[in-house]
């Protein structure tokens, strides 16, 4: 083969690929996208390895998407002087991660467990899939994967189009509205303005989402569809007892090593809140977590400073409300729960 045509083809390829990437990058920036990290097992593992930091300098958070949206990590860290390690997983039951930390003899720190009852008391394997994948990756990660993670971080911090959840080929195809056969559930994904992920794994709602009721309604409809699709009744009786016992066993292990565990119920509103209160009455679920484990707890409804929020799509706080929530959450921890931080918390 004469090499010249191949070289010419190679040069044309470089030019076309560069042109396509630059055009796509400029286009997505013009559409208001900004940097968002892939919240994959590699990012989770990067945070998981931080849980051994001294207990008086850091706090670990586990739960589902609410604590990822509602805890503003910049506010937490600037107010307390402590590091916030976010290990919550969206749409997931946090108990597998709680047990993972409990079984890790080297974890002796402070732990905040976010409770979204529909997920916390779920036995559906789908709700544990993401935590299990993350923990498996953390346990088995290879040096090559760690190196790739750092290169990926560098690229994701520079290129907005590197956004797997909203802008990848698969995500774009999923947006196509193609009719399905009866009985088939097709999740088209959340609206792309719903949220962005920071490198510290905090998620935040975009300003467009917080302002646009059309987008909010789309997300509300997704919640309704998910709730209707869920065939799992709220746990009760011996099943609930055994779940709570498993949580107690895990919490006791952490406490026995000098660790500290606190449960938090973050805000929800509208029909979501009504549905949760009906399906998971507070006295039967939330109160029992606290009584069985003997842990402290903060339920948003008990504190006027964090009880007044309206979640734009009924389940998560907007970015500005997350800052207010975090400030008040820290105050409650400091003033009412006796938590100590590196920096004194202003009354």
């Amino acid at each position: 083969m004469n090499s010249t045509p191949l070289v010419k083809a190679g040069i044309l390829t470089v030019v076309l690929v560069a042109a396509a990437v630059i055009s796509w990058e400029l286009y997505v920036r013009s559409k208001g996208y900004d940097t968002s990290y892939d919240d994959d097992p590699a990012l989770w593992s990067d945070k998981r390895k931080m849980v051994y930091e001294p207990a008086d300098k850091s706090t670990v958070f586990i739960g589902s998407s609410r604590i990822k949206f509602d805890l503003d990590i910049n506010t937490w860290e600037s107010t307390t002087g402590d590091h916030a390690i976010q290990l919550a997983c969206v749409g997931s039951n946090p108990v597998p991660i709680l047990e993972n930390l409990a079984n890790d003899e080297n974890f002796k720190g402070k732990l905040v467990v976010d409770v979204t009852e529909g997920l916390f008391f779920s036995t559906s394997p789908g709700n544990s899939r993401r935590p299990n994948e993350n923990m498996k990756y953390y346990k088995e990660k290879t040096p090559a994967q760690q190196a790739s993670f750092h290169i990926n971080h560098l690229l994701e911090s520079q290129f907005v189009f590197l956004n797997k959840e909203w802008l990848s080929l698969g995500a774009q195809l999923d947006k196509l509205d193609i009719p399905d056969r009866p009985g088939v559930y097709h999740f088209h994904g959340f609206p792309s303005d719903f949220g962005r992920v920071k490198f510290n794994r905090q998620e935040y709602m975009t300003d467009k989402m917080a302002a646009d009721t059309n987008i909010q309604n789309k997300v509300k409809n997704i919640w309704v569809t998910i709730m209707k699709a869920s065939k799992e009744p709220p746990a009760s009786g011996t099943k609930l007892d055994s779940m709570l016992n498993a949580v107690k066993v895990a919490v006791d292990k952490i406490k026995a090593r000098g660790g500290q565990v606190l449960f938090v119920r973050t805000p929800s509103s509208g029909p979501f809140q009504v549905g949760e209160n009906m399906g998971f009455p507070r006295e039967k679920y939330w109160e029992r977590i606290l009584s069985v484990t003997g842990c402290q707890g903060i339920h948003y409804a008990d504190y006027p400073a964090i009880a007044h929020f309206i979640c734009p799509e009924n389940s998560h706080l907007s970015q500005s409300d997350a800052i207010v929530f975090t400030k008040n959450f820290i105050k409650i921890l400091s003033e009412e729960k006796g938590w100590k931080f590196s920096k004194p918390v202003q009354p």
């Binding site: 044309l12 076309l16 396509a20």
Partner: peptide, 24 residues
């Protein structure tokens, strides 16, 4: 193949590769 056609085909492969954003 003509070099320009090969270049276009090669570009399509790479653009789709970058666009798919699959993890390793």
């Amino acid at each position: 193949m003509p070099w320009w056609l090969l270049g276009i085909a090669w570009s399509v492969l790479l653009i789709l590769l970058i666009w798919s954003q699959e993890s390793s």
